[in-house]
Design a protein around this nucleic acid. Structure first.
Lengths: 184, 184
DNA sequence: ACAATCATGTAAGCCGTTACATGATTGG
DNA sequence: CCAATCATGTAACGGCTTACATGATTGT
């Protein structure tokens, strides 16, 4: 239940509207925490009611008004408290792994279908890795001159990069194995 | 929503009661799909109503009766159909990553607390890797003599092993970085 | 005696997804 | 003119977690 905390971190890095937050969750934050705009709006209202965030109505010309949220004192305190609590292990849900083991109980044609599926996954992971590497060059051009905040952001990004490299290597392994089984 | 399918795969590999399934989800299957016994019982009842699984009451001496489930024809058909549908990308929820970025907005003491947390995580991932490697030696002593089902099981296990190796390497990176930031 | 294991369940509540709705502006 | 973007929301449903409940047996 860390959506509140992910939102607080994002607002501390940069105040913004619910809409802007939703876009950040689609882009950078979505690397390690996903959320739809409906979730974000609902949680923002609750956080505002609890005094965790402060909202300021901002009139815009040519666009609808927006409510710009920023992290408030009680929100920072809640974040600090949460930081000191242990987190439980992440629950794993790996559909592709279920499919691979399921393929043993289907006819050989299922292996062929699974190969196409895995190829699609491989492509999307390769694209994600490319985006990470591009973002790294753009946001961290000089790795020897980072402040603490950037160091921590880059640390998380490195995790994403290594995760995707591992994924690609494993998916190559999966493809080689499935092709061997499909042809043999 | 692949819990049904994960259960079907498990029952195809070996029929069993809800309780036994829950234990498998705690052990081997939990590597790529988690579920509590409450979820499993509820889904099993629905699957039985839909004819996906067949239940047989088994009386035991000294223990409560149990219902042993096995995958039925419609269940296998549903699994085959699901295998041919594309899966969406997994949603990522990485609490530790949120905490690392949150640490930038707390006092330095938070970094120290986070280091202990990461050390705990490192230990549990190291233990998991050791269990995977041990299980690999036990269940797949001769990698050149595997049937298709075992090949696919080993493929998934290799994914788990590489995932944990990647995790360990990244957590070492995290510890080194946090310690440098905490002392500097 | 006590804890652990076997075996199954109810109930409450939050979380998350999906679909739908509104209404204005900008760019092709 | 149509699609996309900006901006916020309601409603319904189902999934998942947490807490609680029951009751017997085996091992220390």
């Amino acid at each position: 239940m860390a959506l509140e905390h992910a939102i607080l971190v994002s607002l501390l890095e940069q105040p913004g509207s619910g809409y802007e937050l939703a876009r950040r969750f689609d882009r950078s934050i979505g690397r390690f925490w996903t959320a739809t705009h409906q979730q974000i709006y609902r949680v923002l209202r609750r956080m505002e009611a609890d005094g965790w965030v402060a909202a300021e109505e901002v009139a815009q010309d040519g666009r609808p008004d927006k409510k710009v949220y920023s992290a408030a004192g009680p929100g920072r305190a809640a974040l600090a408290e949460w930081l000191r609590e242990p987190v439980e292990p992440e629950t794993v849900r790996h559909e592709l792994a279920v499919k691979i083991r399921a393929a043993a109980f289907d006819d050989p044609a299922a292996l062929t279908a699974l190969i196409s599926e895995v190829e699609r996954h491989r492509e999307s992971h390769a694209a994600l890795l490319a985006r990470y590497l591009h973002g790294e060059q753009r946001d961290f051009p000089d790795l020897d001159a980072l402040d603490t905040r950037q160091e921590l952001q880059h640390l998380v990004l490195r995790g994403g990069i290594e995760f995707e490299r591992m994924n690609l290597a494993w998916l190559d392994d999966v493809l080689a194995t499935l092709r061997r089984l499909a042809s043999g």
